[in-house]
Write a protein that binds this DNA or RNA. Structure first.
Length: 354
DNA sequence: CAGTCGTGGCC
DNA sequence: TGGCCAAGACT
């Protein structure tokens, strides 16, 4: 005899234990009639894609402070958006964020659509984010399935089929649970449960509102779920970075990377392509024929699918050096505000060191 | 469908 | 300390 998982039990737990987050309207405030701002919900959901709450918080506050509405963001310079996004990762999100804001401003009169399919048609909004905005911002009964929900449902139903093959099954079970009343809070409750009690390691099953309904718990395999296909090993790629300092003011030469692909649209000191068979001492690859000095320590950085070892070279350039199109001198007081990804900040720092 | 696409914190 | 993980989307 088992107890059926009830949305009501989860919502009761959420009423007591909901996390307080800058983009969230608490259950108490919602009862007082406060509605979520779709712009804030959208902005937070884009930032939270594969990104931790802690990492998102300062970026969310900074964006909201600078661009308080979707119309303000639509009118922003894309380069400024990229600068503000620097360090958060997955930079195509920033480009799609700007494109999405423009579409909402131009095609939806600055109001986000409430319909899941209409949301899904906007750039950067996939199945998860469309459902999340529909549910959280508009209280539509959408099935919101993220990594947290996949874990909760996999355990609740003891699904041993590995991800991603189990996704359709997980979705079906989630749809069965979505309540007509408070679907937005239900979605957030599922994610809060997965982020706290139903954590990847050491789940706190004794405190879970669904413990008596959980097949994974009953079978003693909850912590081992969800199963996942084995991951492929990351290869190591190598490359060179050239930190060029301008004689006199120590401005650093930067350029913009191509709009798509790795670190697309972001800024960098000149680099070589990153490859597994790269040589890191071939100065014919340098952007200028100067007296380059190799810095003693390489920069190491790990991306999603490869490790990078970057040899950093430094030189000083005469102030009248002729620059190619698309590159510029960034003086010391502007360097921190440039659209430099973390790996490129590391490279510049290494190049500035002794 | 499987590969691409960042970063920081965790154990 | 190196792999795992975090509110995925796009191709």
């Amino acid at each position: 005899m088992t107890v059926q998982a009830s949305p009501t039990d989860l919502l009761a737990w959420y009423d007591r234990h909901a996390r307080s987050l800058p983009w969230r309207v608490s259950p108490a405030d919602k009862r007082a009639g406060i509605r979520p701002d779709p712009y804030r919900v959208w902005l937070s959901e884009i930032m939270l894609q594969q990104t931790t709450v802690q990492a998102v918080k300062p970026y969310f506050e900074a964006f909201l402070d600078r661009w308080p509405t979707v119309k303000a963001l639509a009118a922003a310079d894309e380069a400024e958006v990229m600068k503000a996004w620097a360090g958060l990762g997955y930079y195509s999100r920033a480009r799609n964020l700007k494109a999405c804001a423009e579409r909402v401003a131009a095609e939806h009169q600055g109001q986000f659509p409430a319909d899941e399919a209409d949301l899904r048609a906007l750039p950067g909004i996939g199945p998860y984010t469309a459902a999340a905005i529909a549910a959280i911002a508009f209280d539509r009964p959408a099935a919101v399935v993220d990594g947290n929900v996949e874990r909760v449902i996999s355990r609740l139903h003891a699904i041993e089929t590995p991800l991603p093959a189990s996704k359709p099954d997980i979705r079906a079970h989630t749809e069965d649970l979505v309540p007509e009343d408070r679907p937005g809070d239900f979605a957030q409750a599922m994610m809060d449960l997965g982020a706290s009690l139903c954590s990847p390691r050491k789940p706190a099953c004794a405190l879970c509102p669904w413990t008596s309904a959980c097949a994974g718990q009953r079978l003693g395999i909850a912590e081992t779920l969800p199963r996942k296909a084995p991951k492929v090993a990351k290869p190591t790629r190598r490359g060179m970075a050239f930190v060029l300092l301008r004689e006199g003011d120590d401005a650093v030469l930067l350029r913009r990377r191509p709009p798509k692909g790795l670190l697309g649209g972001m800024s960098e000191p000149p680099t070589t392509p990153f490859t597994e068979d790269a040589v890191t001492d071939d100065l014919t690859l340098a952007p200028f024929d100067l007296d380059w000095q190799r810095m003693p320590a390489d920069v190491r950085h790990t991306f999603t699918h490869f490790h990078l070892e970057l040899a950093v070279w430094r030189a000083t350039a005469p102030a009248d050096l002729a620059l190619a199109d698309g590159s510029w001198w960034s003086p010391p007081e502007e360097l921190a505000g440039e659209a430099l990804p973390t790996v490129m900040k590391k490279a510049v720092t290494a190049g500035l060191g002794e």
